[in-house]
Simulated assay, not measured.
Amino acid sequence: MSERSSVFDMIGPVMIGPSSSHTAGVVRIGRVARKILKSTPKKAIITFYNSFARTYEGHGSNRAILGGLLDFHTDDERIKDALILAEQAGLEYHFKSVGNASTLHPNTVKIEMTADDGTEATVVGESRGGGVIRMRSVNGFDTNFTASSHTLIVYANDQMGSIAFISDVLSHDDCNIATMTVSRKGKNDLACLVFEMDSGIKQITLAYISELNWVRNVLYIPDIDQ
């Protein structure tokens, strides 16, 4: 006799329900968001778009995103209780849905977060199937990284030579750059540099980059599945 299974059953290391896009991918987006905020949010407004807007409750995406914000891995059995566990952790959350956003991927979620110390961050992520994600934007800048590699995000003044300089620093740390994305508010304004790398960065290197006088902020996200 076969056993009954729920939408939160696991296969291997990847959590799946009716669709891994609605569970495993969403958990990963939540975990990336938490790392960008650098803490568990105190408040979170979570907006599901398009396909997600119609199915997020039935497919468990609401539990999955909160599980990610609580830093649960995709195969963590606590995800099924994430609504209650989030409240117990002091996370005030609110879900919204937008069913017709034609410019966005069908499985898009936006998370607007506030930490205990008042720090705010907003991320937009896409769950693209099979647990694969793409972080479309961070704090209003286009980013387009997958979080499957070690990712460095540098907010810096838009000045000549900045990309080459950071690339050189990373090369001295034996970091091979796989992809790079650059977005900026405007010429000579704030820029966002995103480096996806095959290996991690030493803490001393992160500290050095952070102390550069033209760098505003540095975020580092290791491989999200580690």
Rank of each mutant, 00 (worst) to 15 (best):
G25C: 06
V138R: 00
T23M: 11
S61G: 08
S210Y: 04
G17S: 13
Y208Q: 12
N217L: 06
S137D: 05
A191Q: 08
L83R: 10
V194R: 10
V182H: 13
E126H: 14
L206K: 13
V182L: 13
V154M: 10
Y220P: 11
G130R: 10
Q203A: 14
F145E: 09
G90Q: 02
A44H: 05
T23L: 15
I46G: 00
S39C: 05
D75F: 07
C192D: 01
G130A: 08
V215S: 13
N139F: 00
A82K: 09
Y49G: 05
G30C: 04
E211V: 07
F72A: 03
L85S: 10
G130F: 06
S148P: 03
K96E: 15
N176S: 14
I45S: 11
A82S: 15
S61R: 05
D168F: 09
I36Y: 06
L104G: 09
G130C: 09
M197H: 09
I46K: 04
P41V: 01
I221R: 00
I177F: 01
S19A: 15
A53Q: 06
T108N: 09
I224D: 05
M113Q: 07
Q88I: 00
R128C: 09
G90Y: 01
M10L: 13
I221Q: 00
D168H: 13
N139Y: 05
G140C: 02
I153A: 04
D76L: 00
F72H: 07
L70K: 09
Q88N: 15
A86P: 12
A115F: 00
S20T: 13
G118V: 04
F145L: 12
I166F: 10
S61I: 04
P18K: 12
K110V: 10
G90T: 04
E57L: 12
M160N: 12
A33T: 01
V138T: 00
E92V: 11
E196V: 02
G161W: 01
L190E: 11
T181C: 06
S61W: 01
L37M: 02
S210K: 15
A44M: 01
D158I: 04
F195A: 02
V109A: 03
R184Q: 14
I221L: 11
Y49C: 10
R128D: 00
H105C: 11
K187V: 08
L37F: 02
Q88T: 10
G12S: 09
H73G: 15
